[in-house]
């Protein structure tokens, strides 16, 4: 399941952090930032901007690639006063959230803040995603169907 990290564990911890931040709601980022890192000093390296990513598919699912169509995305890069550079990027249009995701991605690299980012930000997102995925799977499982082939009358 793409939204449950467990199914495809990402070997790069930074990529795993980004994957969770990309799926966060605005509150899931802004509330912990306000409560635990008020007055944080950072510089904007790349101001949050909205653009497009061309999504590619593959012929037959696993063949040569083709351009399926575009999606909106937002990205931002910030740098903390202590030098860590954070990247925020996700599907959709939300500059404020992209900057918050970048700040938290930078904080997750800072030794002193890593545990707090995990506890106050990443763990709640991970839990919500797991619950959502579980609920959807359970609803889908209830529609599992067994068709029976009837014997055709010969004649």
């Amino acid at each position: 399941m793409p939204n449950a990290e467990a199914a495809r564990p990402n070997p790069d911890p930074r990529a795993a952090t980004m994957a969770l931040l990309a799926r966060a709601t605005r509150d899931e980022l802004s509330t912990p930032l306000r409560d635990h890192w008020p007055n944080l000093a950072y510089a904007t390296i790349r101001a949050a901007e909205i653009g497009l990513v061309m999504l590619r598919g593959r012929m037959g699912g696993d063949g040569a690639p083709f351009n399926l169509g575009e999606a909106t995305m937002t990205r931002a890069v910030v740098e903390l006063a202590t030098g860590e550079r954070g990247y925020g990027q996700f599907l959709g249009r939300d500059p404020a959230r992209a900057e918050q995701a970048a700040i938290l991605e930078a904080l997750a690299q800072r030794e002193a803040d890593r545990e707090a980012v995990e506890a106050f930000v990443l763990a709640p997102i991970r839990q919500r995603l797991a619950e959502d995925a579980q609920r959807k799977r359970a609803e889908t499982a209830a529609t599992r169907v067994d068709f029976f082939t009837l014997v055709r009358a010969e004649g």
Partner: peptide, 21 residues
């Protein structure tokens, strides 16, 4: 809007299935 780039080709085999017939 500017285009930032291309995605890695989507892996439909790894889909979180909600319907499959």
């Amino acid at each position: 809007l500017p285009r930032f780039g291309f995605s890695v080709p989507l892996d439909t085999a790894d889909m979180a299935i909600r319907r499959r017939i």
